[in-house]
Design a protein around this nucleic acid. Structure first.
Lengths: 214, 214
DNA sequence: ACCAACACTAAGCAAGCGCTTAGTAAGTGT
DNA sequence: ACACTTACTAAGCGCTTGCTTAGTGTTGGT
């Protein structure tokens, strides 16, 4: 089992190693982990630079050695989170199998990611609007690509005769909504594991799209 | 057609009249409408009391004539929003028809409410944790009642043989997730009306729960 | 006519904010 | 040995925050 496929990172540092293995030096990664924790728990605007620094075990001025601003730290978290989600969706859409199999994989892995990485997922989904204008546009573009890939797969399924939905856009959005909303309520102590939840939601999604039970 | 069943309130004042007809004096209602607008757009912590007062056309000190704090204003919005959602869900669950018909109504009206009242819905869903501890507990209790009513209806449907799902809790959460997430992305200018979206989502939900197509 | 009661504002207070500055300590290359 | 770079801290600056205070009309009962 690869390191990144465990149930969830047991410590913030381990989570940071999984999410941002390339961020150097290690102190910068620790600051990102600390920011992520604070942003996920209290939201960006309720988090002070002193909160982040304290969670990372340093003075607030240290943040500015590695990041030009609090907003830039948020951007790094949100951007890399979106890129990981895009990679998950892209692998599912362009992978092997018929549209139903690929949609099942998309729903399963998308949901699983949002449950296992619920802290990142929460910041990714709900702190978008706290970004400066330019950063916001960059991230909205990533979101559009995720939505278009998903809608494309719904359309493929309809053309292949395995899905049956009235509105492709609404159906695609519904698929993603189910996964995204997991970030709002999922907690580490939950009885259903991210993997099991992903499987359950994938079943729900396929039925929702009118796919024949396999 | 009753006033509250139009597509959406055309002005903040009209919206306020629909949402909080009993709040007196009118100035307090205007402050709530202004707070709602600001909280929905920028979030609670990014909104200053000066923002709210300016949006209501008065000085920031006027807020404290009608509310003891900024947090109390948020609480009034969040509490009344939750009570309206609970009423919608309760009417559907205890209404007429078999479980599938009642679940269809629940999904339709729940989703429709979140689209038409997307500003309130956004604050209700995402600004919970900004509330003071006591207020938070009050609201979490309302949320639990909404979830239990929904889960109960799923269970009823299973016992009546019209639904087929593995995990009742997961299925109930999925039904609500679809509606709640509408608040995150829905905008007034959208081509799909709240009513049409509610109908689409109700269809998706019934298929998701394994109900035979009616 | 008078007086509370009410609804409001201009001004401002203490606290906390993001971020900067000046300086220290520990490498690293020559 | 020495200069230079990098990573950090203590202190604090200018500004904004939620909220208060003192005072000003306006209203309605007697």
């Amino acid at each position: 089992m690869r390191r990144s496929e465990g149930r969830s990172a047991s410590t913030p540092a381990a989570l940071a190693d999984e999410l941002w293995p390339d961020v150097r030096p290690e102190t910068a990664r620790r600051l990102m982990a600390a920011g992520l924790e604070c942003f996920a728990r209290q939201g960006y605007h309720a988090t002070t630079t002193r909160d982040i620094a304290a969670a990372a075990g340093m003075s607030s001025a240290a943040l500015y050695v590695h990041f030009p601003s609090k907003a830039a730290l948020l951007f790094e978290i949100v951007r890399s989170g979106h890129e990981q989600i895009l990679a998950v969706v892209d692998r599912a859409v362009t992978g092997a199998g018929d549209p139903a199999a690929r949609m099942g994989r998309l729903a399963r892995e998308f949901t699983e990611w949002h449950a296992r990485r619920h802290a990142v997922a929460r910041v990714v989904a709900y702190e978008l609007k706290s970004l400066p204008e330019d950063d916001y546009r960059t991230v909205v573009d990533l979101r559009r690509r995720i939505e278009h890939l998903t809608q494309g797969l719904v359309r493929e399924g309809i053309e292949a005769g395995v899905f049956e939905v009235r509105d492709v856009q609404a159906a695609g959005r519904a698929v993603l909504s189910l996964g995204i909303d997991v970030a709002r309520w999922y907690e580490d102590r939950m009885r259903t594991s991210p993997r099991a939840l992903g499987q359950q939601y994938a079943d729900l999604v396929l039925r929702m799209l009118g796919a024949d039970p396999a």
